[in-house]
Structures are given as structure tokens and as C-alpha cells.
Design a protein around this nucleic acid. Structure first.
Length: 270
DNA sequence: AGTCGCGCCTGGCGGC
DNA sequence: TGCCGCCAGGCGCGAC
């Protein structure tokens, strides 16, 4: 499941093949994704060039002079560049043909992903309501302390809320809370300032390390039909319920929080 | 306004 | 072997 590091790695991998390329064809085989794919608008873009590939949270933007094709990879999506024809498979929903002869192909078995259209000058409300990027200075200790103030929601859910900060999915939330020594169930407003400060640092550290690793494990976005090697990095708690804590050896606990699996060490995280 | 629970979807897995 | 049922999970939305 792509989290922010995978999305950023996708952006970097795809950008050089797409930037300054004119769109020559758009084929939508499956318009039913998270929201209906705006097929007509996409078709009308043929002849325009992609000026830039940017990212906000887990959303990717293929920017043209008229606006941006906004792509979210959901749980199971991937984007890759094909430099020669490859027979589309069952889950290859959209092909974006480029003047170079290459093709940008969106694959998404579970179709939790989405493709939207954002006209130039009109930010989608779902984008404008997003919190700061976790790797910028706007996401700092003071900010998180402020947003946690008086909140009864569990700190894990707060940090996974994209209106608070973008790009922290379930896996990295588990890992960051472990690194910061915080019980994921603790009401956000009751987590101490020093711990929130550590949490901000942990999120930045984990996400940037994952992006760095993504550069090596997910390097090949061209012509590869293999699955990208997500999460090659070692995880301390996620997926390790019942196994010993790497720090204190106590058996890791698993609970469900908002229908998501949450793993933590009840000794190290309080 | 904050919090909670729902639903979208399918590959993979455990159980029989 | 084959089939069935269940689960994961991002995230916007509607309900309280």
C-alpha cells in the first residue's frame, strides 16, 4: 500500500518521462474507481503538454496549462512508464499516451485509488483541506502541540488524520509512535509536549529514511512488470504482534483502532 | 466542531 | 483440490 514515501518515489521515477511530453492518447478501461474517472475531461486534454509532476500528501499532479490530472494510488495503485507496448492486464485501468511513444499506465487492483481533474486556479476542496507536509518546517513541535490541545481522539488517529498532517499512514504511524515511546491509544491532548516533540522528529526521520530507501528499492518505474518492493525497510512493530519488542523483549501488543491494526510495546510506549 | 463508523474493492489466506 | 468467508486498509462522508 503506497504511503507517502512510495508516492514520492513514484513521482521521482515517473517525472523525467512525463515532463514536457505532449499527451497523445488517453484510454480509460475502467472508469469506476474511488470516484468516477472524468473520462471526457481527460480526453479533451489530448494535445496539451505535461509541464510538471508534483505531489501534495499522497496525491500526484500531472500539471497542464489547463489544470492538473490528480491521481491517488489508494491502497493498491501503481503508476509506471512503458516504453513499448505491453498487453494491458485485468487491473490496468488507464493508459496515458505520450508523444515520446511511452505510456504512463495506472494499475490498481482494489480501485481505492482515484483520478480527478483540477482546473487551473481552482483547488479541489479535498486538496485545500489537507494539513502540512510532514517533511517541511510547517510541521513542527509547536504545530502538533497546538493541534493536540484539548483533543480526546487517540494520538495515533490524530496523526493519521490528513487534515492534521498528510502522508502518515497506518504503518508509519505505528512505527513513529514506537520510536517516540508513546502509547498509540493515549488521547492526543494528554500526550506531553516533550513526547509530541519526539513524535514530530520520529515521523520526519521515518518518512525521510523510507524515501531514501524507496530510491533504491523502488527504482525501476520503467518497463518493469514486477511489483514494486514496498516496505523493504525493517519495521520495528508493524506486522510483529506477538513477537518480542526489539528494545525490551516484551511481547508486542495488537489492538484495533478505527478498524486498523495497531501494534505497540506496552512497556516502551506509555 | 469533534468524533465515530461506514463503505468502496479484490487478492490472499485459513479452514473445511 | 476447490470453494467459501474473512480480512486489510486510505480516506471522504454522513450521522450524532
Amino acid at each position: 500500500m503506497p504511503e507517502l514515501p512510495e508516492v514520492e518515489t513514484t513521482r521521482r521515477g515517473v517525472a523525467p518521462h512525463v515532463i514536457n511530453q505532449t499527451l497523445t492518447s488517453i484510454v480509460v478501461r475502467q472508469p469506476k474507481m474511488r470516484w468516477p474517472v472524468p473520462v471526457d475531461v481527460l480526453q479533451s486534454l489530448i494535445g496539451l503538454a505535461v509541464n510538471n509532476v508534483s505531489r501534495r500528501g499522497k496525491y500526484l499532479f500531472l500539471e497542464t496549462e489547463r489544470g492538473a490530472i490528480v491521481i491517488h494510488l489508494g491502497m493498491s495503485g501503481s503508476l509506471r512508464v512503458l516504453t513499448h507496448y505491453v498487453e494491458p492486464g485485468k487491473h490496468d485501468h488507464i493508459d496515458i499516451g505520450l508523444a515520446s511513444g511511452a505510456c504512463l499506465r495506472l494499475t490498481d487492483p482494489r480501485r481505492f485509488g482515484s483520478v480527478l481533474w483540477q482546473p487551473v486556479g481552482e483547488e479541489l476542496s479535498l486538496i485545500s483541506s489537507l494539513g502540512p507536509e510532514p517533511l517541511t518546517d510547517a510541521f513542527n513541535a509547536d504545530y502538533l502541540i497546538n493541534r493536540s490541545q484539548g483533543r480526546s481522539v487517540a494520538i495515533k488517529q490524530l496523526v493519521m488524520n490528513s487534515h492534521v498532517v498528510v502522508g502518515v499512514g497506518n504503518i508509519y504511524a505505528n512505527e513513529a509512535l514506537f520510536m517516540a515511546g508513546i502509547d498509540p491509544r493515549k488521547p492526543a491532548g494528554k500526550v506531553s509536549k516533550p513526547k509530541l516533540t519526539r513524535l514530530v522528529a520520529a515521523i520526519k526521520k521515518i518518512l525521510s529514511a523510507a524515501i531514501e530507501q524507496g530510491g533504491t528499492t523502488l527504482r525501476d518505474f520503467v518497463d518493469s512488470d514486477g511489483k514494486p518492493g514496498y516496505f523493504a525497510q525493517s519495521l520495528s512493530v508493524y506486522g510483529r504482534a506477538g513477537e518480542p519488542c526489539l528494545v525490551c523483549n516484551k511481547e508486542l501488543t495488537e489492538v484495533r483502532m478505527g478498524q486498523r491494526s495497531t501494534v505497540f510495546c506496552s512497556r516502551c510506549q506509555r
